[in-house]
Design a protein around this nucleic acid. Structure first.
Length: 529
RNA sequence: GGGCCCGUAGCGCAGUCUGGCUAGCGCACCGGCCUUUUAAGCCGGGUGUCGAGGGUUCGAAUCCCUCCGGGCCCGCCA
């Protein structure tokens, strides 16, 4: 059974309408590593529905947290100087570097949120700042303040340096300098917490002393208390979170105790997950090690990202590499799809597993009919020579990659071709990039030997006299080389020189079969002159 | 100091929760085919003390204990 289903079953045992939370701190670009959070939440919700339950999932933007570090790309050049002044200020109150966005949060979170639909994610979005401003956090905050001693005792269990006796679980927003990270709460009464802006380890305070109205969002609960408060407020019964939270004595452990003892609720069913690395480095929004959802859509179908998340267990580290490794991801996905549609044999167990992963990878409903796919490797070649869509369709049907295609098959083919084109230009190694020369390349004129020209002349003649399948054509090159007394690499080089102006290229049979035959014949003849 | 993950074929991994067919997949590799393979040629081949040891069991990659190796996270920010 897939782990998502296991979670869903466990939840249904506990209650009838599970609420699955996800969320992250908007501390920079939101990347595909963060997708674990929201994809898992949404995946569990879907599994619940399939089991006849009723799940609800949401994503919570922690946009009221103070900026501790200037994230990439704002930490470069002039921007870095400009953004220094905002250290310690809640993200939501920091301006956007780009006038097209409302503020810092909008700048970083909007591209992510707007992409969610493309990935088949359908969850409610909450903003931490809005929740605080609306006053919904007032009662949980009051409860926490009342039980500050109890909370302090819980946190102290895992601390080597105990919290001071007058500690309060609240971070006020400094009325004068707007910072949240710099204030220390001194005491509270009614709806107010009095504070002093003293500074923190990374930013100085302004010294102001004042009172914050906690019913009006003039501050927030400290993270370790805010989390269980949120569980209480939103009735959270399941939540995926990064492995950093999952450590013993970490925020989940203390949150669990605080939930029970202070908020009188149960901690959500935890689904800890490993992080995603990008070419060997952990993704990090602040450091700029990111790969975003819009970037993903440029080079791959959304199903592939879902597949990437759901194919392995959540606590297994995932590594993403948009370079050559992407080809394998495509192949793997296509294989899983073929197993799902029974086009490739697999053992019963494997089939069951693949089918479930395939279903979870789909944006919405799993297609009933077999999907026709253009292999991505082939798409990288075709995308570089196709002149228009009609041309591509012709090639694909003559190659039997599309057979009597439906409208959606054609759409999928073009989407993949467009991904391939983008991938080739942005992430592929240079050797996979080529351009068919519009006119006979000078290299061909200079470098071709008499024998090579003879080979090309003969090839042109053969091409015009009969049709070759790609494999036949490839094989034919060997025979031909023999016939004209050339070593095979010399003939291959000659072909590439004539067409591309360089000595290597895509597999010849494949390559020529996607080009216009008359064009190839005339070019080969021209090169042989 | 605490915790988590990983250890299965040359490499990357699935299978471990719920013990049970002959331990599987991809790539690589080897062999064959065509006087032959540049980025999908076809056909065939598993190359393995499932990290080690012990235990439970009719039966262990799978459960329990101990150990070894690699990686990561947390150590009081969230």
């Amino acid at each position: 059974m897939h782990w998502i289903d296991r979670v869903a079953k466990a939840l249904l045992k506990r209650d009838k309408k599970p609420v699955i939370a996800s969320g992250i701190s908007v501390s920079g670009h939101i990347h595909i590593g963060h997708c674990n959070d929201i994809f898992i939440a949404d995946g569990v919700r879907r599994a619940l529905e399939e089991l006849g339950g009723e799940g609800q999932a949401f994503w919570y933007a922690d946009d009221f947290d103070p900026m501790r570090r200037i994230p990439w790309p704002l930490n470069e050049g002039e921007l870095a100087e400009k953004y220094k002044q905002y250290l310690g200020i809640p993200y939501i109150n920091i301006p956007s570097p780009d006038p097209n966005y409302k503020n810092f949060v909008d700048f970083f979170a909007r591209p992510f949120i707007e992409s969610l639909d493309d990935f088949g994610i359908d969850v409610k979005i909450y903003s931490g700042a809005e929740i605080y401003r609306s006053g919904r956090m007032a009662e949980p905050t009051r409860t926490a303040l009342k039980h500050a001693d109890k909370i302090r005792a819980i946190l102290n269990r895992y601390r080597s340096k105990p919290l001071p006796e007058d500690w309060l679980p609240y971070d006020a927003l400094c009325e004068r300098c707007g910072r949240l990270a710099t204030t220390r709460s001194l005491s509270w009464h009614d709806n107010y917490v009095s504070y002093k802006c003293e500074g923190s380890d990374y930013i100085a305070g302004c010294g102001y002393e004042g009172e914050a109205d906690f019913t009006k969002g003039q501050g927030k609960l400290t993270w370790r208390v805010e989390w269980p408060a949120r569980w209480k407020l939103l009735g959270v019964t399941c939540e995926p979170f990064g492995k950093d939270h999952a450590v013993v004595g970490g925020s989940y452990d203390t949150g669990k105790l605080i939930a029970k003892q202070v908020f009188k609720c149960n901690a959500p069913y935890p689904v800890p997950y490993e992080w995603v690395s990008l070419k060997g480095r952990w993704m990090s929004s602040s450091k700029g090690v990111v790969f975003t959802l819009p970037q993903w859509l440029e080079i791959a179908e959304p199903e592939l990202l879902r597949y990437f998340i759901f194919r392995s267990k959540p606590m297994k580290a995932k590594e993403f590499d948009p370079g050559l490794a992407l080809l394998d991801l495509y192949d793997e996905y296509d294989l899983v799809e073929q197993v799902h549609f029974g086009m490739v044999e697999a053992s019963a167990r494997r089939k069951e597993q693949f089918k479930r992963i395939y279903q979870l990878s789909q944006l919405r409903k799993t297609p009933r009919r077999r999907v026709q796919r253009v292999p991505f490797r082939f798409a990288t070649v075709l995308a570089q020579v196709m002149r228009d869509e009609k041309y591509a369709i012709n090639v694909l049907t003559s190659r039997e990659m599309l057979t009597d295609p439906s409208k959606s098959d054609i759409e999928l083919a073009f989407r993949r071709l467009s991904c391939a084109r983008n991938w080739v230009s942005k992430y592929a190694p240079e050797r996979l990039q080529f351009k068919v020369a519009e006119t006979l390349p000078a290299e061909a004129v200079q470098l071709l030997s008499k024998q090579q020209k003879q080979g090309l002349t003969q090839l042109a003649a053969d091409l015009s006299s009969r049709d070759f399948t790609p494999v036949e054509l490839h094989n034919h090159i060997y025979e031909l080389a023999q016939r004209v007394g050339l070593k095979t690499p010399e003939l291959f080089k000659a072909i590439y020189l004539a067409l591309l102006g360089r000595e290597s290229g895509p597999r010849v049979g494949n390559f020529i079969s996607v080009l216009d035959k008359e064009f190839v014949i005339s070019r080969l003849r021209e090169a042989a002159l």
